[in-house]
Design a protein around this nucleic acid. Sequence first.
DNA 1: CGACTAGTTGAGGCCAGTCAATGTTGGTGG
DNA 2: CCACCAACATTGACTGGCCTCAACTAGTCG
Lengths: 262, 262
Amino acid sequence: MQVATAVRVPAPARSAKVRPLRPLLHEVGRERVSCVTCNLRRICMPVDIVDPETKALFASLVSTRVRLRKGEVLFRSGEKFTGLFAIRTGSIKTVTATDDGAEQVSGYHLQGEIVGVEGIGNDVYACNAVALEDTEACTLPFDRIETLAHEDASFQRRLYRLLSSAIVRERTVTLMVGSMRAEQRLASFLLDLSNRYQARGYSPSEFVLRMTREEIGSHLGLKLETVSRLFSRFADEGLILVNGRVIRLLDRLALSQIVSAS
Amino acid sequence: MQVATAVRVPAPARSAKVRPLRPLLHEVGRERVSCVTCNLRRICMPVDIVDPETKALFASLVSTRVRLRKGEVLFRSGEKFTGLFAIRTGSIKTVTATDDGAEQVSGYHLQGEIVGVEGIGNDVYACNAVALEDTEACTLPFDRIETLAHEDASFQRRLYRLLSSAIVRERTVTLMVGSMRAEQRLASFLLDLSNRYQARGYSPSEFVLRMTREEIGSHLGLKLETVSRLFSRFADEGLILVNGRVIRLLDRLALSQIVSAS
DNA sequence: CGACTAGTTGAGGCCAGTCAATGTTGGTGG
DNA sequence: CCACCAACATTGACTGGCCTCAACTAGTCG
């Protein structure tokens, strides 16, 4: 209910000058920002940028960075599409709503991931993107993306891949929600997170969930009580350790067996 | 179970020369094929192609057409991505499978729609596309799409739109499957079909389902018995008329109220 | 005709939702 | 520092919607 509208008021002292259009976003001032030197490059924009020409192009891709506090909104559904955002630190949930008022957490995005892709062709964003913790994101203005894509074929490919991967990912979620039992969905969710943390160089067996039980449930098509019960049951069965939002996976094999069971 | 593997043997007399790589597909021989003169253009490729230069480009977009009989496969998951397909007549279901053997009908595509988009960035198709009836599809080889997109900005935009719309559509399905009750899902499915048929100039209130109850159920995350029961119940309540796969919507307002209920 | 597929309908069971009580945590102000 | 409150989380009891199993019908094809 209050998920999408939970825009906490930013600390007033933090930023003196408040922009009229995006009062909630704090631009990270003069800080030098470039994909070329970014250490998330291999996850975020895995294009070969040794070529000096490409390098020059890439240097102009990111204009500014934006800083969000927990609960603040990066973009809203229906807002004019201005570009993509790459998460540098922190994490973001995307919330999709229907006309009927139904609302669902459609995505949980970590460091190095790019959000906003569903807005590319339609001129408007199609979901709300909300910071789950203090988060920094690079802005990738769409005109620059277009230019770069037009001038560099490998980047163009990368952009296509970004979009089609999003389709495949959505489809996987649909399949999971549509054909799996609750325990399978949660196990699948945990293993997916584990893989993504591992790909980022973090421990695949211990991580902190940035979402509430209710948000996880919404994402998986379950109720919060069901999520809570399943965490407890997995813990009882020795598959995981649960300490609030800190999760340790003890038996990933067993979890994957649950996913593929019957 | 037999959904994806139900490749009926094509009539042997129909096509004398059998291609080695795609023995199941019948190319439509010398027939003149061009987007420029196609009467599905406004649905399929709504770009302005009055400009003579664009016209020339478009003339080269579609190379051949392919003819499928009911049950034949247009492309398979894992197969190398060669391009997109535009459905000229007939209809196609896309079936997505997980590693665990779980399988789900992920899409139901009508005349004028384009399938294969999820393969664009990944070099392989990510689902099986199966003809639900005798179907003709235009092949849009990816190299030509790339060329055209590079040379014509409005087509590039159209391509982005195609991809992002697919994301949004998938997300809608996820939301439906994840947060709606069975009757809401079926009502939503029927209304969606109604709208799409209307957009194609067909009756929005009477159409023929090309999928079995089981396939519909799979698409909506339900069992076939549930789908059947709901059809009967909607019919009892005077909302629809059911005669096998022929559906007539009697009260679309009531159906949309079911969708948005609670 | 027999075999098969698709669809309908009924009976019963189970998984997950609902409602409710209680515990835990983190932030705020006195 | 502690009391207090709100948000988050856990657990129990119960309900109900959908699944499962099963029987039966209708249509199709060889």
